[in-house]
């Protein structure tokens, strides 16, 4: 049977968890058939009838009975409509699409996650995968920078990871009042302090493009080879399946060759505007 790549499957909202004032995680279960299990780093196209469609990363895979989780910041018509959904309401899901965080390639290596803002959402399945298979990896660190203490995503889960004794979790915010006792400063400042061994570490970086550019620079300054660095690119999308060309990034289509890309493969165009 040929599957129509544009056809969304109906999913029902189980819960909507407000993560921050403008960001929420929707938990979804299929009404009938389910999409194939997404791998860490993949995204789906979420479709709101009468509103439109948007590519959204999977922030929690539907494994071991868990629902499919996707975290959205309400910025435009589609994302705002989705985070306003109530349990029981439905939306369409197609996918999963895109490339995968290098959790397999990182086997036997140290792993450094660098997340900026909402960039923690697409990284969360990779962090969960690494922690669920802890013995397969060396040192594991997560450096997370966000705007303010109110904008910290997944607080409970971060606290739980922090309680594990063999994971380094560092959180910093760009701005704060005195009531915040954690670090203040940009996430790149955490990189030299993290004490990673660049030759044996695989870095996975996700966040706004400017934050990723500065993070890559800091990683290179710390001696990390380009082929150890992975970033997640975003371009606006239409088909999500490599047919329309909307998401072109240099010679690649982000929906097919991305969103996760190894830095050495895109280094030549990473800093070029409007590519």
């Amino acid at each position: 049977m040929t599957v129509n790549p544009y056809l969304p499957l109906p999913y029902r909202v189980i819960a909507v968890r407000q993560d921050t004032p403008d960001t929420a995680t929707v938990e979804l279960r299929p009404v009938g058939a389910a999409i194939p299990e997404p791998a860490p780093g993949q995204f789906t196209m979420l479709y709101m009838l009468g509103v439109g469609e948007a590519p959204i990363s999977v922030s929690g895979a539907p494994i071991e009975g868990a629902p499919l989780a996707q975290t959205l910041r309400g910025v435009g018509a589609v994302s705002k409509a989705i985070i306003r959904l109530q349990p029981g309401e439905e939306l369409g899901v197609r996918g999963p699409y895109g490339t995968i965080w290098p959790v397999a390639e990182a086997d036997g290596h140290d792993v450094l996650f660098i997340a900026g803002g909402l960039g923690l959402a697409p990284l969360r399945p990779a962090v969960r995968h690494v922690l669920a298979n802890r013995e397969r990896y060396g040192r594991v660190s997560l450096l997370y920078g966000t705007r303010s203490p109110q904008d910290i995503l997944y607080r409970d889960e971060l606290a739980m990871w922090r309680r594990m004794l063999d994971v380094q979790i560092e959180v910093t915010v760009d701005r704060a009042h005195r009531s915040w006792h954690g670090a203040v400063g940009v996430v790149t400042e955490l990189i030299p302090r993290a004490g990673v061994d660049p030759s044996r570490t695989i870095a996975m970086v996700c966040g706004p493009e400017i934050m990723m550019r500065f993070s890559v620079q800091a990683l290179q300054a710390a001696g990390m080879p380009c082929e150890h660095i992975y970033v997640s690119m975003e371009r606006s999308m239409k088909c999500g399946v490599g047919l329309c060309g909307r998401c072109q990034f240099g010679p690649d289509f982000v929906c097919k060759q991305g969103a996760v890309m190894r830095y050495d493969r895109i280094a030549h165009i990473f800093t070029v505007r409007e590519i």
């Binding site: 403008d22 910041r73 910025v75 994302s79 900026g116 803002g117 909402l118 960039g119 959402a121 920078g145 966000t146 705007r147 904008d151 760009d174 701005r175 400063g185 940009v186 790149t188 400042e189 996700c206 966040g207 706004p208 400017i210 934050m211 500065f214 975003e234």
Partner: peptide, 18 residues
């Protein structure tokens, strides 16, 4: 200075979805 630029840019702000 670079860090201050990044902070000023407010890269995680509402108008710049991650």
């Amino acid at each position: 200075l670079q860090a201050a630029h990044l902070q000023l840019l407010d890269v995680y702000g509402r108008s710049d979805p991650a």
